[in-house]
Amino acid sequence: MGADRLRHMFASARADGRTAFLPFMTAGLPDPSGSPALYRAMAEAGADAFEVGIPYSDPLMDGPVIQRGSDLALAAGTNLDVSFEVIRTVADRSPALAMTYANPVFRRGVEWFAQRLSGVGADGIIVPDLPVEESADLRRAASRHDLGTVLFVAPTSSRARIEAVAAAEPIFIYAVAEVGVTGERTEPSRRAEGLVKAIRDVTDIPIVMGVGISTPAHALAAAEAGADGVIVGSALVRVVLESPDAESAAYALAARVREFRAVLG
């Protein structure tokens, strides 16, 4: 459990020449009781680790699909307790990172939040509205509870900012493949290669690319650019939103994950 499990995952993926595949899925979809089965299906289909979204009312970094997923999960009764229980079932099987926004974390306190996450076996935490200069408290709390923290680098980030991110020693760098919020795109990122190179010039910390990666072809492009892992979110959440029930959602997700897995080695 914890940061070491993630380090080991990236190390073995690198050793095998594979690119890790990290699905994002909002906890509590399609409803709290049906939620764990979706992650289980994706794990069995070859997902390496999960970004488990703790739903939030005002997800600033998310496009319409994940916003809608978040709203539906909240309406279905997904509170923090439900989210933590979902994370527990995910982490029993695979490395699991919690993703949420700064306000739910600060409302309970960074120490409380890190302790609870650690208690359910989570390996890390991702907070997209906490840039490196606002992240020190969370990083300290996460480190006390053996959680990895994730920091972001965007195509707009300067070298100085990338250096500051690297110096904070995130468990991986979330490389934002598109200038924009999460959501599906028709074309693969034109920024992927330059972004990976800019980060690699500074640090050897694993790079996981996300935002706008919607198809196996996009994922392959990110892998070829040199990313250690890829995150796919909206394209998978949409599958759930379009499925009539949890069982068919799980089935459809597994099929999608196998398609991504097939191109990522």
Partner: peptide, 20 residues
């Protein structure tokens, strides 16, 4: 320097916006 008025304020924004 951190954009604070006492304890309030700051810069809780996605990395993409930070350079801007």
């Amino acid at each position: 320097a951190r954009g604070r008025f006492g304890e309030f304020g700051g810069t809780f924004a996605p990395e993409t916006l930070m350079p801007a």
